[in-house]
Amino acid sequence: MRTSDSLRKTYGETLVELGKDNKAIVLMEADLGNSTMSSLFAAAYPERYFQMGIAEQNMASTAAGLSLTGKIPFINSFAVFASGRAYDQIRSSITIADLNVKICGSSAGLSDYGDGKTHQSIDDIALMQVLPHMTVLSPCDAVETEQMVKAMVEHKGPVYIRINRNDLPVVSDPAAEYHIGKMTEVVGGTDAVIFATGVMVQQSMAAAELLKAEGVSVRVVNVSTIKPLDKDALLGYCEGVRGVVTAEEHSTIGGLGSVVCQALSKSKLPVEMLGVDDRYGTSAENYDILLRHYGLEPKDVAQKVRDVLSSK
């Protein structure tokens, strides 16, 4: 059980733990190992660690080849490069053949606050989830990260996981059963439901507290599997509420909000989407400044709930 608030450290530690008995697990890195924390695996099992240099395209296709010999390669880079730089390699070499390659998009969203727009990924969920065969995971804390990494090894087929660079408080129940596709109610409520992913789960939980003080009862659901989306569970969580809000640290085009709206296309429920509004990131001294600048704070989520409840 992880008690750490660090998702990426947990990612690396879990792979070290799994790699002890499962010799099929191999890691590949494009020289960001001290950030992605694949470096932990390098120290433990150097013979199963491939430092591929700053060449993400080759890394992705080479991973395809390794998987074709029965290995379970995890390729690691920042989310923006892991998804975008190697996009056609993921598409052609990996997903068309439904190969068992795991892709870790680290420092996802705006979480690499200092590095700015070239290093911040607001489009990785969109790019990855449009690919047939691909599974897309977005953990909100270290507990979920550990559960997901274990599930990724068990799951046969390509999986993309986006991991926040910064520490986030644990909100998931480590004792709860986990499976890919699961969505979890983290706050109960009746007036509206917020479907959130990643850091926006914690932000939405704080928003629910703000709204509670106003007498508004809000349910918060952690949607940590973007694809495949459990539509039945989603519709179930919409029962009885008067409005739906989606919250993600990603473009509102092609992310969680898009797939929730798709799933609710036959519903009459109003939906408000909160995310990064069709623009790139920017540098900042800390993460909080960016969450404020892009309107991803609890007060912004709360406002979306008010908006959706007052809409006709």
């Binding site: 191999v26 491939f50 395209q57 080759n58 992705a60 296709s61 080479t62 991973a63 395809a64 080849g65 390794l66 998987s67 074709l68 010999t69 029965g70 290995k71 390669p73 056609d88 390699q89 598409r91 052609s92 070499s93 068309i96 053949a97």
Partner: peptide, 18 residues
């Protein structure tokens, strides 16, 4: 799966390493 040019040598390398 090949056809998108430039990827087959990388895939081959992965197989060789595996």
């Amino acid at each position: 799966v090949t056809g998108s040019l430039g990827q087959g040598l990388s895939v081959s390398l992965g197989m060789a390493l595996g």
